[in-house]
């Protein structure tokens, strides 16, 4: 696991998200109304919708394509829908956001 700096909290709007392009695909970094930061795959388990384009509410995001609700904390689809996205380890140091990417997987790209 390697930590990569990707930006600061202020780069992300509250109740919003930004996308990070990585060799493993796109990762969504989300900021909640109470300034918690989460990173999950930017790829809805349903039909691959870009979750970063959804509406962020509480610690969840609603996919813009078909309104699946995904928990930012667990990556699990909420309600009656079943599915999950990968959550990405994330830490904040002095206002900078870092996400952890898997070395081996990356090497395999």
């Amino acid at each position: 696991m390697t930590w990569f700096p990707i930006g600061t909290i202020d780069d992300i709007p509250q109740r919003g998200a930004r996308c990070v392009v990585t060799p493993q695909g796109k990762i969504g970094v989300f900021r909640t109304h109470d300034d918690r930061i989460f990173a999950i795959e930017d790829h809805c388990p349903h039909k691959g919708g870009p979750l970063t384009q959804g509406i962020v509410h509480g610690a969840s995001v609603t996919c813009p394509l078909h309104n699946w609700v995904i928990s930012l904390e667990t990556g699990l689809a909420q309600g009656a829908d079943e599915g999950a996205v990968r959550t990405i380890p994330l830490k904040i140091e002095e206002g900078r956001i870092l996400i952890a990417l898997d070395r081996q997987l990356m090497a395999a790209e």
């Binding site: 390697t2 930006g7 780069d11 709007p13 930004r18 996308c19 990070v20 392009v21 060799p23």
Partner: peptide, 16 residues
Amino acid sequence: KHEFRPLAAVPYQLAA
């Protein structure tokens, strides 16, 4: 502006 640009791109060579 932020809506239309990725926050960051992890470069392939660095990642690899």
